[in-house]
Measured scan of single mutants.
Amino acid sequence: NQASVVANQLIPINTALTLVMMRSEVVTPVGIPAKDIPRLVSMQVNRAVPLGTTLMPDMVKGYA
């Protein structure tokens, strides 16, 4: 199973992502692939993302 990107903490709306905010985990449904973590750094979330939430492409500005 492919690992997805999961929030390692509460990420407030419009926050630029950093490595410490994200972890990889095998979850259902599948979200953004963990291999894309380096690409996500500095991108902003367009909503508040609670701890443990799988990041989906529509949550990150400029990803999709």
Rank of each mutant, 00 (worst) to 15 (best):
A64Q: 13
T18M: 06
L19Q: 05
N14L: 09
E25A: 11
L19M: 08
M22S: 00
A34I: 07
I32C: 05
K35Y: 15
T18S: 06
P33M: 11
T28Y: 13
Q9P: 01
I11E: 00
K61C: 13
V20G: 10
T53V: 11
M56D: 05
P29F: 08
M56K: 07
L19C: 11
S42P: 02
M56S: 11
P57Q: 15
S42D: 06
A64F: 05
G62M: 14
R39H: 15
A34G: 12
Q9M: 14
E25N: 06
M21P: 00
V27Q: 08
A16I: 09
M43Q: 05
T18A: 07
S4E: 01
T15F: 13
A34M: 11
Y63A: 03
P57V: 07
T54V: 10
R39P: 03
A34E: 15
R23T: 04
N8M: 10
P50E: 07
L55G: 01
G52H: 14
T53P: 01
R47Q: 08
M43C: 04
D36Y: 06
R47A: 09
A64R: 08
M56H: 09
V41Y: 07
I11C: 03
T53Y: 15
S24K: 06
A7T: 13
I37Y: 03
N14M: 10
L55R: 00
L10H: 07
I13F: 13
V20C: 15
G52Q: 04
V45G: 01
V60W: 02
P33A: 13
A34C: 15
P29K: 06
A16C: 15
L10G: 09
G52L: 09
A48D: 07
N8Q: 12
I11K: 01
Q2L: 14
K61P: 08
G31M: 02
I11G: 01
T54D: 01
T28F: 08
N46E: 13
V41M: 14
I13T: 12
G31K: 01
I13V: 13
P12V: 06
A16H: 05
Q2T: 13
D58E: 12
V27K: 07
V26Y: 10
A7Y: 02
K61H: 10
P50G: 09
P50T: 15
P57G: 10
L55Q: 00
V6L: 07
T53H: 15
T54E: 01
V26C: 12
I32A: 02
P12R: 10
G52W: 06
Q44I: 09
V26F: 09
N8W: 09
V26E: 15
P57C: 15
P29I: 08
A48K: 08
R23V: 05
P38H: 06
M22P: 00
M43K: 05
P33I: 08
R39L: 14
Q2N: 12
S24Q: 14
P38V: 08
V49A: 06
P29R: 04
A64V: 14
P50N: 12
D58P: 08
V45N: 03
T54M: 04
A16Q: 08
V41S: 04
M43G: 04
A34Q: 05
Q2P: 15
G31W: 02
M56Q: 13
D36P: 00
G62N: 11
V20N: 11
L55P: 01
Q9V: 11
M59L: 06
Q9L: 10
E25Y: 10
V49H: 01
K61D: 06
L19T: 04
I13K: 07
Y63W: 13
I37M: 11
L19P: 05
L19E: 04
V20M: 14
K61V: 11
V6W: 02
S4P: 01
Q9R: 07
S4T: 04
V26T: 09
K35G: 14
A16T: 07
M59P: 01
R39K: 14
M22L: 08
G62R: 06
R39D: 05
E25V: 05
V20R: 10
A64E: 12
M21D: 03
P33Q: 08
V45W: 00
E25M: 05
T53R: 10
T53A: 13
R23Y: 04
Q9H: 06
I32S: 01
R23S: 04
P57T: 14
V27P: 02
L51E: 14
I13A: 07
N8P: 02
L51A: 13
V45S: 12
M56W: 06
N14Q: 10
N14C: 12
G62W: 07
K35W: 15
V26H: 12
R47F: 08
G31H: 01
V6R: 04
I37A: 07
